[in-house]
């Protein structure tokens, strides 16, 4: 892996994506006011930001949702017609579905479903294998940047069916593909967590060796 990709990947993992679009009206309003008049408005802007960041963290850390394959297929079928709906589709993609999943099977195709009740940490402590939802955002130029890199055991899944079952494929078995204009990718990433003698959690990196590739129309 080149230094450029290595450093970019590490930095991307340090700093969360910012989904907030800002508040241009507030900028204009404050530009027309004396500095002393800005206090109350700034508080409200901070609240809005905090809520949106909570939403982003919630999305990135917890709640999974898929339909990825369906969404990709739908966009690939009519990419130009779908442009306006894409942002809404991706939001839906990121907002629904289970936080954590468990899978059965091996190889290129796994059958997965929402992990039954309880906190992920407790279940991991009990020795269970869980995958947590992971959202990549702001994918703009897959070929040039080579990021984000996925872990080889990271899962790409279909949307849950009526029984809550999903079909998932490890990124190392089925190279993940994004369509032109797609800016967000939802995966399930295995929790690689062990516990130290004092009960503290110890995480580790997996094998980040699977690049996204772009679909050529």
């Amino acid at each position: 892996m080149s230094d450029d990709v290595l450093v970019r990947d590490a930095l991307y993992r340090l700093e969360p994506e910012v989904a907030d679009r800002g508040n241009w009206a507030q900028v204009l309003a404050d530009a027309g006011r004396e500095p002393g008049e800005r206090g109350a408005r700034r508080v409200s802007r901070r609240l809005i930001l905090a809520l949106s960041l909570l939403a982003v963290l919630g999305v990135a850390a917890a709640t999974p949702a898929l339909g990825l394959r369906d969404a990709i297929q739908r966009w690939a079928a009519a990419p130009e017609e779908q442009t306006l709906d894409q942002a809404a589709d991706m939001r839906r993609l990121a907002e629904g579905g289970p936080n954590d999943i468990q899978c059965i099977g091996t190889g290129a195709e796994l059958t997965c479903a929402k992990a039954p009740g309880g906190q992920a940490l407790e279940r991991l402590r009990a020795g269970e294998v869980l995958y947590g939802r992971h959202v990549y955002g702001d994918i703009t130029n897959v070929v040039d940047s080579g990021v984000p890199f996925l872990e080889s055991d990271e899962l790409l899944c279909t949307a849950p069916d009526a029984d809550g079952q999903m079909v998932c494929s490890p990124a190392g078995k089925v190279p993940p593909t994004v369509s032109p204009g797609q800016r967000m990718l939802v995966t399930y990433r295995r929790y690689h967590v062990t516990f130290g003698p004092s009960g503290n959690t110890i995480g580790r990196h997996g094998e980040r060796t699977v690049p996204l590739t772009s679909r050529q129309e």
Binding site: A10, R13, L14, E15, P16, L57, A60, A61, A120, L121, L124, G132, H134, E151, R189, R190, Y191, H192, V193, T201, I202, G203, R204, H205, G206
Partner: peptide, 20 residues
């Protein structure tokens, strides 16, 4: 910036702190 435990997964809390 990143909240502790925001990503329990393979990002590795210890590695991330080291990178910080």
């Amino acid at each position: 910036v990143i909240a502790d435990g925001a990503d329990l997964g393979s990002n590795g809390v210890g590695d991330r702190e080291g990178m910080r």
